[in-house]
Design a protein around this nucleic acid. Structure first.
Length: 410
RNA sequence: GGAGAGGUACCGAAGCGGUCAAACGGGGCAGACUGUAAAUCUGCUGGCUCAUGCCUUCGGAGGUUCGAAUCCUCCCCUCUCCA
């Protein structure tokens, strides 16, 4: 690459790095390093921390992963940092119940699950997986004190949730103040060039820059991404609020969940999720935003692409077909699961069948569903909860719109 | 160490001796409607082959009472204020 080519490439990459991001801090310090890396044909080291206690990734997490993939596509090296040391002490900010300290084995298992899930978004074979116990465990008390010298209480209290709690006279454990420091030191140990995270991580990421300077390293650039609003359109997406779309969910599930967000939320998601990839849909998006256009078509496109991100294009198409068929045309799905139940001498009562087939939690619930005319047998609504079926089959059983099975009674 | 508040169904929250399987809201499920699995409206939302029936449930264990989520005793847990 000529000098000019390199310069151009540096600017191009910086642009990519900023796509869809809330903030890119430290571009100026990164520029010469990126330039050198390109010249010497070596990757930048791009850190992403993971919480080893919550390995269930959802669509919100994928914003950052999507960006990490972009880095990888640019030839850089993703480093997943598992905060296993940190996890063993206990969770800081989450003022919930003291999470039980995780043992090494659980952390390993969680990390594996995490990598599995991340593998749906980017190529994990071209990435590093590290655990911060690697350098934290060998540290002595003196080392820890030395690390603490690198920051002041005032600096730490500047963090929003700390200052808030301080003002509110809520307790702040001393060890909690250590968290940002440890996380920052991880960047030192990893020689991180860039660290990614959600906007909620801004403070910790910035602390990494401070501490790296203290250890005579050039400060990492940080790229923060906005948090994604959940399917409820109100709160940020999180597992505990059950308003998320899990990365490992079935394609039809993901598709359906995207389809049922409000049109207004759809636009916000588009802007968050689409960076760098959905440019071709931008006109359609703008049309919808302007009150014209076809919201349903756009939503279909988005749903298909979200599914494709995790499960591939084919699954995206299949999920789209499934939705059109089952939800829009109210037809039976192409594949109906088969259920075999053990019958009694007389056969089996309908309520028991529904419950045992896992289509209701209990006989009582099945009874209520029948009363609500939600149960169909071979296409006919059932009115009598006392219905009983002789052995044999297959019986086509539908409970509500989304539960269908072919039942055999043996 | 001292003072106080509280633990109720999936969540929040009423109830404070019988009419309580427990108001109300959220969530969930179902039905209608719909471009949509959205919005809206309506119903349901402990278990039991279903019953003016039985069983389990209001932090835990005992007790008072014909009868307790409600009163008493002890215990466990959470929170707030003061030191």
């Amino acid at each position: 690459m000529s000098r000019n080519d390199v310069a151009r490439e540096v600017e191009r990459q910086l642009e990519v790095m900023a796509e869809g991001a809330e903030q890119l801090v430290g571009a100026d310090e990164l520029r010469p390093r990126l330039e050198a890396a390109l010249r010497e044909d070596r990757p930048l080291r791009v850190k992403l921390g993971m919480d080893p206690s919550a390995p269930d990734l959802h669509l919100g997490h994928t914003l950052v992963l999507q960006k990490l993939k972009r880095f990888q596509d640019l030839g850089h090296l993703p480093i997943f940092l598992v905060g296993d040391f940190t996890a063993r002490i206990g969770d800081p900010s989450g003022k919930k119940k003291t999470r039980p300290a995780l043992d090494a084995e659980t952390v390993r298992a969680n990390a594996e699950t995490y990598v599995d899930q991340v593998g749906k978004v980017l190529d994990v074979s071209r990435a590093e997986l590290r655990f911060n116990s690697e350098w934290m465990d060998p540290m002595g008390a003196a080392d820890v004190v030395r690390l603490c010298q690198r920051a002041t209480v005032a600096q730490l209290l500047a963090r929003e949730d700390f200052s808030q709690r301080y003002r509110a006279e809520e307790p702040i454990g001393v060890h909690e103040l250590l968290y940002p420091l440890v996380q920052a030191y991880d960047s030192v140990a990893l020689h991180a060039d860039v660290e990614l995270g959600g906007t909620d991580q801004t403070f910790n990421l910035l602390m990494g820059r401070e501490i790296q300077r203290q250890y005579d390293q050039p400060p990492q650039a940080i790229v923060t991404h906005p948090l994604l609003v959940g399917t409820d359109g109100r709160e940020k997406m999180s597992k505990s609020l059950d308003n998320g779309i899990g990365i490992t969910e079935a394609p039809e599930e993901i598709y359906g969940k995207v389809m049922r967000i409000s049109d207004e939320l759809m636009l916000r998601w588009f802007d968050r999720l689409g960076f760098g990839e959905w440019g071709d849909l931008a006109p359609a998006r703008d049309a919808v935003a302007g009150g014209a256009g076809d919201p349903l078509a756009l939503k279909h496109d988005m749903a298909r692409r979200v599914v494709a991100r995790f499960h591939g294009n084919e699954a995206g198409e299949a999920a789209a077909a499934h939705f059109r068929r089952v939800v829009q045309r109210k037809e039976l799905p192409e594949e109906i699961p088969e259920v075999r139940l053990e019958g009694e001498s007389e056969g089996l009562g309908l309520l028991a069948i529904i419950a045992r087939a896992g289509m209701a939690k209990s006989n009582s619930e099945a009874r209520r569903l029948v009363a609500q005319r939600a149960v169909k047998l071979d296409g006919q609504a059932v009115n009598d909860p006392g219905t009983s079926l002789p052995r044999g089959g297959p019986y086509l059983l539908q409970v509500g719109k989304r539960r269908v099975a072919q039942v055999w009674i043996d």
